[in-house]
Amino acid sequence: MTSYVAVIDYGMGNLHSVASALEHAGASRVVVSHDPDIIAQADRVVFPGVGAIQDCMAEINRLGCDQLLKAVLASANQPVLAICVGMQALLDHSEENGGVDTLGIISGRVNYFGAGLKDDQGQRLKVPHMGWNEVVQTKPHPLWAGIADGSRFYFVHSYWVEPSDPSLMVGSFDYGVTGCAALANENLFAVQFHPEKSHVAGLKLLSNFLTWDGTCS
């Protein structure tokens, strides 16, 4: 199986880390682009995201990345990995920036952690949720292959994803709330953490993505 990967670039910052990590994980070729023709030729697609959701959505829509992503997901033969804000953009609505409608590809919401966040022992929790947290693999999935349940991944976010259909969730984290660390639907796998910054566990997840056939079995 070849592993020519397109990273969708909608102009919101550095994508070199994602591209470098994919190359390190064994991708035969990585391109960073928002050209539909280039993305159509790739074996698999990464939808990254960093920054504020309002700016991200504006650029996604301006560059036609919304239609592009929907076409890729519908094609079913290109596995897709969405990362962080890329994952959040898939839902219906985010509380960030005073409330922003997002792509509506996955039904659900993106919530603020909120001021006064506390853990179950009443200890105050800082926001952003920044650092290495444990990811509980709530469902088996090919992208978890060879990664121990409870492995730590690097998170940095102030908003968390809550899909309407809890059965889409394949990984969770605890940080005052039990949030969605990973969700999967057909050829889509989406993660709140940054696999490209999560050392051994992150690189393993990326290498699993490079050999994934896009099915959940």
Binding site: L125, W132, F173, D174
Partner: peptide, 8 residues
């Protein structure tokens, strides 16, 4: 708390 303290 499950979030690890970081060493930098």
């Amino acid at each position: 708390m499950p979030l690890a303290r970081r060493i930098i």
